[in-house]
């Protein structure tokens, strides 16, 4: 039987040279279509261990779709997606294993409304990792402490503010001790004054050397926290690199126009 991971591109996860951090995510020629609409048109991306990557781009550019291909919430149409050494592009039996090791934080939080904050943080540990109740509770309190919400452990989630709810969602992901954390526009559903607390929490995580892939419109955050910024437009990676370079001196006209639009509200 032919190796299903060896597509027409022959894509394999690149092996990191000695001394460089390990490659934890490797995407090659990723395409995704919905019917006749092609949202991703051949994306290549690598993410290394400990790296914080911010994905920016206009709405409809395909950045959320790209992120959702990284834990197979969306199934790639073609191309390869390797995460933590597993191929997620074709038929895969490793999906649950990868998902247990990758956390995701959603724009709409997606907390479980019939549970308290601490129960939310325990659920994945209990149901996916098989941890016992006591251990899950202890680790849940640890995670809630890290996001500054230990005092609200027993609160029903709808009693919390949007910013607090998103921090519970971050704790829920954190408690699984993931090797990679994916953030899908984590502050976009929040009022401006609530965004800072979520961004602060994320900055703390970044400082702990966690591997994070963040789809965001927060340019200030990207500039300060990201190791690398990836600009996606029209389903392809248009430009990427050090945020201080890319966000201040974009080398492409499209990124220049996009930055003008989001930073100054000007259409050039």
């Amino acid at each position: 039987m032919p190796d299903p991971s060896a597509g027409p591109m022959g894509a394999q996860p690149p092996v990191a040279p000695k001394g460089e951090p390990e490659v934890v995510i490797s995407v090659r020629q990723l395409r995704k279509s919905y019917g006749t609409v092609e949202v991703l048109k051949g994306v290549d991306i690598d993410v290394h261990a400990g790296e914080v990557v911010c994905i920016i781009g206009p709405s409809g550019s395909g950045k959320s779709t790209l992120l959702r291909c990284l834990n197979r919430l969306e199934r790639p149409t073609s191309g390869s997606v390797h995460v933590l050494g597993h191929d997620l592009s074709g038929k895969t039996r490793d999906l649950a294993a990868v998902r247990r090791r990758t956390g995701m934080v959603f724009q709409q939080f997606n907390l479980f409304p019939h549970m308290t904050a601490v129960q939310n943080v325990m659920e994945g540990q209990r149901s996916a990792l098989g941890r016992g109740k006591k251990e899950a509770h202890r680790l849940a309190i640890d995670a809630l402490t890290e996001v500054g919400l230990a005092a609200h452990a027993d609160a029903r989630t709808h009693r919390l503010s949007g910013g607090q709810q998103q921090r519970v969602a971050i704790a829920r992901s954190l408690a699984m001790n993931p090797d990679v954390m994916l953030f899908d526009e984590p502050t976009s559903a929040l009022d401006p004054e609530l965004r800072a607390e979520v961004l602060d929490t994320m900055r703390t995580l970044a400082a702990e050397n966690r591997t994070m892939v963040i789809v965001t419109h927060e340019m200030g955050f990207a500039k300060r926290v990201a190791d690398r910024v990836v600009f996606i437009d029209g389903g392809v990676v248009v430009e990427q690199g050090d945020p201080r370079e890319v966000l201040t001196k974009p080398s492409t006209e499209r990124l220049h126009a996009f930055l003008n639009l989001v930073l100054w509200g000007e259409d050039t």
Binding site: N71, L73, L95, A96, A97, V98, R99, R100, T102, G103, M104, F106, Q108, N110, L111, F112, P113, H114, E123, G124, S127, A128, A169, R172, S173, M176, L182
Partner: peptide, 27 residues
């Protein structure tokens, strides 16, 4: 039930039947 509930459970690797029993059906 909002499909975000499924996605949150799936993204953590919670098995399908367990998601139904612990997350979807109670709501």
């Amino acid at each position: 039930i909002d499909k975000g509930q499924w996605e949150a459970a799936e993204s953590m690797g919670i098995p399908h039947l367990r998601t139904l029993r612990r997350i979807i059906y109670p709501q």
